[in-house]
Amino acid sequence: MKIIIFKCIIIFAAIMVLFSCDSDTEIDKEKPVIHTDFINAFPTSCETIYFGETFNLRALFSDNAELGAYSIEIHNNFDHHSHGHNIEACDLAPKKEPVNPFVFLEDYDIPEGQNEYEVNLPISIPSENGEGLFDEGDYHFQIYLTDKEGWSTPLGLSVKMLYRED
């Protein structure tokens, strides 16, 4: 009986060794990177974006393997909830209740097979919606970037959104 048990254990150990010797498939463990540290990058922290105008998003995305997609989200920061890292550096207007805040949510594709991608994307900001003019003030501009494997990187920027005074 003892011998049977020992045999079982040896077989068991052999299976384990077999599996552990199996060479590891090369897997991607790196997150993609959003670069906004070049001269023409836009927006950068504390930048102003104007309602009723079009601006070009300019950023550089890179990944060790292959980029996936990105999205842009803009929401108000009238309550100073602050999840970006540059927040203390900007002058925030006093806290206020939102009335008709601007909301922007868009998803964008990146062409297949890229490990570096320079974004130069025109984004049109409407001047009003069905409720009338948007609330001016402090907003968060968030960029989310993924790579093909599902790693993701966020970038949160504080911006002002205003109507241009002529």
């Binding site: 997609a69 989200e73 949510l105 998803d107 989310y144 993924t146 599902g150």
Partner: peptide, 12 residues
């Protein structure tokens, strides 16, 4: 729960 490269309504 598998994270992909896709986005929907701004989120991964």
């Amino acid at each position: 729960l598998n994270p992909t490269s896709e986005f929907n309504q701004g989120y991964q």
